[in-house]
């Protein structure tokens, strides 16, 4: 029993990364209609950012958790202004070419500098050690990751549902053109939303640095699963991508434990089932298909 619970908890921890990444991907898709294939690369940059910051200027992990996502968010906004916004009226293939190209360039730049081996990153000392969760003890750091990502997801949810900015994002996600004709300058919000999504990916990367292998392909390994998570949750649905992130995390860890040979495909089986039974995703809205 405690073995099962421990697996489920492992799932919540890896689900935390899925949730943060899927959340950003989903908001970006909703607002821009762009599927960001470079999302995993920004996660990787987040982890490398933490590593470089510590290595070169001795920036602590805690500060990196604040600074790196902000810097990456700014980079995201620059890329949006320079390139991504041009995709708006183009054939979707260009979306793939541009964002996948950005991913490959970022990945190879880091590979040139650091090779393919993983960089070491120590846990912050405050989060070293284990906590007793009653039925089992668990690494303190992992507990922090879970609590932090739940709190952050909840915060994003509150901003989206309770504030004027959130209302504008929801409206623009559902119907950008109509929102524009109702006096809201949608384009002004597109750049910060893209930057915010990228910052979330970077933040997930910083969180990953002390517990995952920091290397140039860490984002590429994850991004396929993240797309499955977004589809399962429902494209453009924020609540859906977060919930699906945790569900997929738990499913994968349970799979690893009980049927290791199938664990890699379980998420895609789930995706296929969801597409068959609820094509708009678990939390997607059928009418939302035009957004």
């Amino acid at each position: 029993m405690s073995g099962l619970l421990q697996q489920l908890f492992n799932g919540l921890v890896s689900g935390s990364f899925y949730a943060l990444l899927a959340l950003g991907l989903s908001v970006i898709f909703g607002m821009l209609g762009v599927v960001n294939f470079a999302h995993g690369a920004f996660y990787m940059l987040g982890a490398f950012g933490a590593f470089v910051a510590l290595d070169s200027v001795g920036l602590s992990w805690w500060l990196a958790l604040l600074v790196v996502p902000i810097l990456l968010g700014v980079l995201g906004m620059v890329l949006e202004r320079a390139f991504v916004h041009r995709l708006m009226h183009l054939f979707p293939l260009y979306n793939f070419l541009l964002t996948f190209g950005i991913a490959l360039i970022l990945q190879d730049l880091l590979r040139m500098k650091y090779g393919v081996t993983s960089q070491p990153y120590a846990r912050p000392s405050m989060l070293d050690g284990a906590v007793n969760l009653g039925l089992f003890t668990y690494p303190k750091y992992q507990v922090f990751v879970f609590v932090f990502s739940i709190a952050l997801s909840a915060l994003v949810w509150l901003v989206l549902t309770r504030t004027r900015v959130g209302m504008i994002v929801r409206a623009s996600t559902e119907r950008a053109e109509l929102t524009q004709s109702l006096g809201v300058d949608v384009r002004r919000w597109v750049t910060p939303v893209f930057g915010f999504g990228i910052a979330l990916a970077g933040l997930a990367g910083v969180l990953a640095a002390p517990m995952r292998a920091v290397n140039s392909s860490m984002g590429a390994d994850l991004i396929i699963v993240i797309f499955a998570v977004v589809v399962i949750g429902g494209l453009g649905s924020v609540l859906g991508s977060v919930a699906a992130g945790y569900i997929v995390g738990m499913l994968t860890e349970l799979g690893n434990f009980y049927i290791p040979s199938l664990s890699q495909i379980l998420v895609f089986v789930l995706m296929a089932l969801v597409l068959l039974l609820r094509p708009a995703g678990l939390f997607g809205r059928e009418e939302g298909a035009h957004a």
Partner: peptide, 24 residues
């Protein structure tokens, strides 16, 4: 002028499908 500026000048639009948001 772009649509949002026309709206701000005082044009109030009701599209053929009424333009009501499901997520609002």
């Amino acid at each position: 002028l772009s649509p949002h500026k026309r709206c701000r000048l005082g044009l109030g639009y009701v599209p053929d499908d009424r333009g009501i948001y499901a997520s609002l």
